[in-house]
Amino acid sequence: MIARDDDLPEIAPARPAWLMTLADLALLLVAFFVFMQANQLDGGTLARGIRAGFGGADTGADVPPAPMPVAASALDGFAPGSAEVPAPVAPLVGWATEALRDPRATLAVTGMVDGTTTDVDAATQSPALLAADRARSVASVLIAHGIDPRRIALTAAGHPGRRSVSVTTGFAGNRQSVAAPVSAPPAAHTRT
């Protein structure tokens, strides 16, 4: 049997193309105004709001961002299970002193263990404690050579095969303020 035109169901008319374009434009405008409103908040308030939105704990205090790493050096040669600083330290101290000439730079001193059962703290059998002890030992050497302790942050990490301390310099400051343009002194008028 052949279907006739009056036997087929009626097809609903499609939405006009301009209606979809108008809906897209309206959503873009809403997103733009939400973005403009969010930019009126200070950075700390916005960060706390985002942290709370993702289920993070709100400490009420602004957490400063970690310094952006710029350069790194290392002190290798630690004996297994030891936090005694191996010699020589002069190259590391010279590098750190030069890196901290910029007052916006900081040092991150990271102690590392090799991951073996012999490279652990003798008293507690903790590799994390040994890594922290290595970082503290190197930081104390840097401080003894004139590095400001407020510019040093200590961390500990385990990297298989590395019995060392990594020292990373990072940029922790803000952009330098742009100096106001110096106006030229008024020209002296001479009479002729």
Rank of each mutant, 00 (worst) to 15 (best):
A38I: 05
A122M: 07
G77D: 00
T117N: 13
G44L: 02
L25H: 15
R104I: 07
T124S: 10
M36I: 13
G55E: 01
V178S: 13
W95F: 02
S137K: 02
V113W: 00
L100Y: 01
A172P: 07
A38S: 10
S183D: 14
P88K: 05
V182S: 09
G173A: 01
M36T: 08
T110Q: 03
R101T: 13
S73H: 08
E84W: 04
A187D: 12
I11R: 08
L19N: 07
P9K: 04
G53S: 07
A90Y: 00
A139C: 05
R150L: 15
V182H: 06
R191V: 13
A172T: 06
L27G: 10
A61R: 11
G94S: 10
L28G: 15
A14Q: 15
G111W: 00
T190E: 09
G53F: 07
D6E: 09
N174D: 10
D58E: 05
G77Q: 00
R136S: 12
A57R: 14
A172E: 07
S137E: 01
M36Y: 11
L22Q: 13
G158I: 13
A90N: 10
L130E: 01
T116K: 02
P67W: 01
A139Q: 04
L8S: 05
A132W: 14
T118D: 15
A3M: 13
G173Q: 03
A57M: 15
P149C: 02
G173Y: 03
S82P: 03
P67F: 00
S177F: 14
A17V: 14
M36K: 13
G44K: 01
P9T: 02
S177N: 14
P91F: 00
A184M: 13
A23Q: 12
T45A: 10
A23S: 09
L29W: 09
I152V: 06
A157Q: 11
G161D: 00
T116F: 01
N39A: 08
W95H: 03
G94F: 01
S126Q: 02
I143Y: 04
T124I: 05
M1V: 15
T155M: 12
L19E: 15
A153Q: 14
H189D: 15
T168F: 04
A23W: 11
D62G: 12
A87S: 11
G44N: 10
D42T: 01
M20H: 09
G111P: 01
A172V: 08
V120D: 03
T124A: 06
L25C: 11
F35L: 12
A72P: 05
D42A: 04
R163A: 05
M112G: 07
G55Q: 02
A83M: 05
L8G: 07
P9Y: 00
